[in-house]
Amino acid sequence: MTEVLAGLVAPFADIASSPRFFAEVLIGGVAAGLMYSLVALGFVLIFKASGVFNFAQGVMVLFAALTLVGLIERGIPVAVALALTVLVMVLLAFAIERIVLRPLVNQEYIILFMATIGLNFFLEGFGEMVWGANVKRLDVGIPDTSFKVAGVLVNRLELTAAVTAAVLVTALAVFFQKTRIGRALRAVADDHEAALSIGIPLRTIWTVVWSVAGLVAIVAGIMWGAKSGVQFSLSLIALKALPVLILGGFTSVPGAIAGGLIIGVGEKIAEVYWGPLVGGAIENWFAYVLALAFLLFRPQGLFGERIIERV
């Protein structure tokens, strides 16, 4: 009984007693959450446009970061290396459309999913073959230090990452809502055949979408890489994106953003305030338990379309 009481009351007492510390936790959560959103966004874009769950999105993040670091290590100036990385990701999108998607058009979704698993292994191996498998440091020139705003500690790197992610997410949302390509993309997401019949070239749209997913992967790769080094575990952040997608709904851009924030903030708060009660490490499973609850009670996610199957 006392344990239950401790779990229900004590954490809130902690929050109330030290609002500044709570704000710091919150900011850390938002920063992490925006990064999750960024990765989840890559998934949503591709899923919307082609119905493919891109298993390789995480490895694309790793591959982008590896390419960037590898180029910088070879003495290429950062700006040039970044431009080259963008070029590599766009070329990759073209290659994927041509070699993987086009021959599999009109196949079952599960087959396309399997193809992205293959792509996952290919990119992982290829990246390591070209750039090596050891952990690399990525220095983006922003010190990993903190400063105080109104008594609240803010980390420079996290702040930059959060702002960049927010800008990118907003830009993408505008791009897909307002532009011709955006309208075409929404059409393709809804019905391939109909989109073709009104003159939308599916192949072009797929290439655009995979390119954008590649760009998002670069940004995510830089941000995570700067924090924890460029290494294989980068590709595992894709696993964190999965609960984000379940929360937000697989087809919703706002959903990916909201889902990422909820999970980022939620897991930080749970870890800091409830962690000590259960011996810590809540951060590792919080997202999945939350996703599980959503699957039970709201399987379409917060913003996803409700699937009603007619019998």
């Binding site: 791009f175 011709r180 929404r186 809804d190 989109a195």
Partner: peptide, 30 residues
């Protein structure tokens, strides 16, 4: 084969896509 999630108006607007020319940047800035 309609775009089920879009409004009727948006559906019909997609029919004009082929006739639209333009610049992605200007589109975005409206």
């Amino acid at each position: 084969a309609l775009f089920r999630g879009m409004s009727v108006l948006d559906n019909i607007m997609t029919g004009r896509l082929l006739r639209m020319r333009g610049n992605v940047l200007l589109d975005a800035l409206w």
